[in-house]
Amino acid sequence: MMASRATQIFVDEHATRPGRDTLTTAFVRAFFIGVSLLFLAALLFAPLATVFTMALEKGYEAYLASFSDPDTGAAIRLTLLTAAVVVPINTVFGLAAAWAIAKFEFRGKSFLITLIDLPLAVSPVISGLVYVLLFGLQGWFGLWLQEHDISIVFALPGIILATMFVTFPYVARELIPLMQQLGNDEEEAAITLGAGAWMTFFRVTLPKVRWGLVYGVILCNARAMGEFGAVSVVSGHIRGVTNTMPLHIEILYNEYNFVGAFAVASLLTLLAVLTLVVKSLVERTGYKGH
């Protein structure tokens, strides 16, 4: 009885002392941080560590040797090429869409916003299938395409189309809220000062949203390099021709070439980590000024 009373007094005193962490909040804080860290460790750090341990299981030699495989090289080149085509196109599209949505009132605006979100909502496999249905041999345009000797599905154009579809929301999604929040005043000021449309865009709007844009481009790029589902459907898995890195990893894994699979995986992971580092650098330098 006495002891519990003493404890009570102790707790009360600590709980009411101003300017210091009280016992209760200290506990709550430790609890939440702990749970978050455990969660991350189980779901993120462990798999990441596995990727690198498996890749280096048979030593450096084997690790590096797996990159000299011509098919792996082709996969890496294809992935980089796809990203190099998709990211600029989606950047332009994202800018245009965000501009239209943030600056103008028009019919079907909410419909357009919903459409932009569509790739995020639809399973990537379905996104891929759509292109097969459209451009495949049995598809709507299949015969016409064959007559004109154009191959889209099971070829580079199909991979690029599918990747573009899956990744186009990222830039727009990043820019729309930013542009809406920043408003129109700077542009209007530029116009009253005599600037034309192009000058206003390049001298005022673009610099204003540049950090949001960079961020969107980074996310878009990360997804473009890592996309599996949609690309898997349209690529046809032709080794050395239409295999991107994620697809190539799957093939190597299925062939029990664990070192090869995890070596490519580690490269993809490194690219992702690099992207994240650039992202956090951008955040630190970009938003500090605001």
């Binding site: 005043d185 700077e186 000021a189 530029a190 116009i191 009253t192 005599g194 600037a195 001298r203 005022v204």
Partner: peptide
């Protein structure tokens, strides 16, 4: 842009 007026906004609208 061709009216030749100067406009000052409530929230400054400086090019940040």
């Amino acid at each position: 842009r061709e009216r030749g007026v100067g406009l000052v906004f409530q929230n400054y609208a400086l090019f940040r």
